[in-house]
């Protein structure tokens, strides 16, 4: 007896590839947002599979805060070359230099919020009408209601009360001039699914995700790495610890976790036993209970 069944990972892969192809077909000029983090690596990998053996029908766009772990950039460039994609980089520093945004002051300063302006400017400058992102609904409560095809008005704003219903697998990407969409092919994936998929596909990811020794200090419950972009305050003690990162974003607000997980099997075991969500290490979400919802309304990813 033949049973026609797909495992949950195969179903999620099939769904994501379907969404990527719909995006290419329904929009004039899509772009895939690529941060070098694991979710965007998985996205680019899926896009490679969706259009193979042709090249990706859209470029990758990195909104670069300038506050990177050096490993991330090296990895990004090698990865892009390997899948034969085009990469565009939008620098937050350029937005600061041109006076579009003002750098935050103080020891807590982060460029995370500034990214939104750079992103919206880059989308406008490139005439992009759909931006593919690696956002997942399990990440944060404001994302639980996000659509696969998320409509943004001409100001790039998300209105949670005015999103189009998505039925079966029919996606409505019609829009007026000046409006655009954010598209989230990984909507139905969880952190665990992403890790299992990385293991299953043998996808390479930056070394920051694996346990390594690093100078860190504790601030507001997060373990932050000592880098050139962050000022250690009086009373904060810098220690060398074995850590790894669960998400890789701006170096000023991405917290590390103490971990000895040095390979994927151990990471998956650790994720399975985790008592904190992965965004629990993100200082930007801790600013207020509705931090993510507020940022999304402004046009944040």
């Amino acid at each position: 007896m033949h049973s026609y069944r797909l495992s949950h990972i195969q179903q999620l892969e099939s769904e994501a590839i379907f969404i990527l192809r719909e995006t290419a077909a329904q929009f004039d000029k899509p772009v895939l947002l690529f941060s070098g983090g694991k979710d965007s690596i998985v996205m680019a990998h899926l896009a490679y599979k969706a259009f193979h053996p042709a090249r990706l029908p859209f470029p990758l766009l990195h909104v670069d805060t300038g506050h990177n772990f050096p490993e991330t950039i090296q990895f990004r460039d090698e990865f892009v070359e390997r899948i034969g994609a085009r990469l565009e980089v939008a620098l937050v520093q350029d937005s600061i230099n041109s006076g579009r945004v003002t750098e935050e002051k103080g020891a807590d300063a982060s460029r995370n919020a500034l990214q939104t302006v750079t992103l919206l400017d880059a989308l406008e400058a490139g005439n992009y009408d759909a931006a593919l992102g690696g956002g997942r609904r399990d990440e944060e409560k404001a994302r639980a209601k996000e659509r696969f095809f998320s409509h943004r008005d001409e100001f790039g704003q998300w209105n949670p009360k005015n999103q189009r219903p998505e039925l079966w697998n029919i996606f409505n990407g019609r829009k007026h001039h000046g409006e655009h969409f954010r598209v989230f092919p990984l909507s139905n994936w969880t952190e665990m699914d992403v890790w299992e998929y990385i293991r299953h596909e043998g996808i390479e990811i930056p070394g920051l995700y694996f346990s390594h020794e690093r100078e860190v200090f504790e601030r507001a419950g997060s373990l932050l790495a000592v880098t050139d972009f962050i000022t250690v305050r009086d009373g904060e003690r810098v220690e060398k610890k074995r850590v790894r990162f669960r998400t890789i974003g701006d170096a000023t607000c991405t917290g590390a976790v103490e971990s000895s997980a040095a390979d994927l099997d151990h990471i998956i075991a650790e994720v399975a036993a985790a008592r904190q969500t992965e965004r629990g290490t993100r200082a930007d979400d801790k600013r207020s209970e509705t931090a993510m919802e507020d940022r999304k309304k402004e046009g944040y990813f």
Binding site: R137, D138, K141, A142, A144, K145, P160, K161, Q163, P165, S187, N188, T190, M192, E289, T290, E293, D294
Partner: peptide, 23 residues
Amino acid sequence: LTDGLKAEREQGITIDVAYRYFA
């Protein structure tokens, strides 16, 4: 746990479809 948005918490209602995941 499932009341997502600020607007909903204030009004004590749920807007729209929200998706949850567990395993």
